[in-house]
């Protein structure tokens, strides 16, 4: 199974590479757009952190680290979620799941591999890593093996949380195709919009909502609190991966229920908009 997944990833990476390098103008434009998007998406918070010397109670360097972490955490779901795999509600709602159902492989495997586009978003990975390294050095962060392990675990947790959360909203399209397509986009956008902000200032109710119902806080804020020592204790380091695991379980359950329902009602609409393009 692992060999097949690797083979499929290699196939989709080739398709992605071929598409990006189809001509020189597109190649340049593609990476230019990628770079501008990456910079612009964090510039606002970065500039505010500079102006206000941080966003209380976070110092400027801590905010920079958080921004970098958020960028890198977003990279993996983006890399695996092309062709509307991350926005799966669009595929389900537009009747495009049928294209997967005629493939001789499990649906989950198709979804895990079909959106793989490793050349996309590369320019958000590099600045993300750069911001973290720069901020880490300024803060004198010691990257000991246990810390690196916790970092990797939390990064994976943050990525998985976003993926599972997007999938949860996306799978709602099995039950309400049109409504879910709209809401899913808004819900994922909200995660992206708020992932770069320290959320300490929020009231307890809102803060809880943003690490549970809309887990934007799990994208960077909560794991960075643990990694930068703003939250003490081993539990804080495990919170994000644990929450991500719970979200993944919920997503899997919803997927199974959704597939059962899809077999009963199917999709009464079809549009090729966004399909394999």
């Amino acid at each position: 199974m692992a060999a097949r997944i690797l083979r499929l990833w290699a196939l989709y990476a080739t398709l992605d590479g071929m598409w990006i390098a189809r001509d020189f103008r597109s190649f340049i434009f593609y990476y230019l757009a990628d770079a501008v998007t990456a910079v612009a998406s964090v510039a606002g918070v970065l500039l505010l952190a500079q102006r206000f010397d941080g966003i209380p109670p976070w110092t400027r360097d801590q905010v920079v680290f958080l921004l970098g972490f958020g960028m890198v955490a977003r990279f993996v779901p983006d890399m695996l979620g092309n062709y509307n795999v991350l926005h799966i509600s669009r595929r389900i709602g537009r009747g495009q799941l049928d294209h997967i159902l005629v493939q001789p492989q499990p649906v989950w495997m198709a979804l895990l591999t079909e959106g793989f586009a490793p050349f996309w978003g590369l320019l958000s990975l590099a600045p993300g890593v750069g911001l973290m390294v720069w901020a880490g050095q300024r803060m004198g962060l010691e990257a000991t093996p246990p810390w690196l392990l916790a970092f990797a675990l939390n990064l994976a947790g943050a990525s998985a949380a976003l993926t599972a959360y997007a999938a949860l909203w996306g799978f709602a399209a099995f039950f309400q195709p049109r409504a879910a397509e709209e809401i899913s986009g808004s819900a994922v956008d909200l995660m992206t919009d708020l992932k770069g902000f320290p959320l300490d200032a929020l009231g307890p109710g809102l803060r809880t909502a943003l690490v549970t119902v809309i887990p934007a806080g799990l994208m960077a804020w909560y794991p960075c609190r643990a990694l930068l020592g703003l939250d003490h204790g081993i539990a804080a380091l495990w919170a994000t991966p644990a929450a991500a695991a719970a979200l993944c379980c919920a997503a899997c359950l919803t997927f199974r229920m959704g597939m059962k329902r899809y077999a009963q009602v199917g999709s009464s609409r079809y549009t090729s908009f966004g399909h394999r393009r």
Binding site: L11, L15, R22, Q103, Y270, S272, R276, R277
Partner: peptide, 24 residues
């Protein structure tokens, strides 16, 4: 007739290769 299995922004050859791998 209304739905293509081809990859929209790729040559036909690439879609055929895709099919070869996915269908083994």
């Amino acid at each position: 007739g209304q739905r293509t299995e081809l990859w929209w922004d790729h040559p036909v050859a690439a879609s055929y290769e895709w099919k070869r791998v996915v269908w083994d």
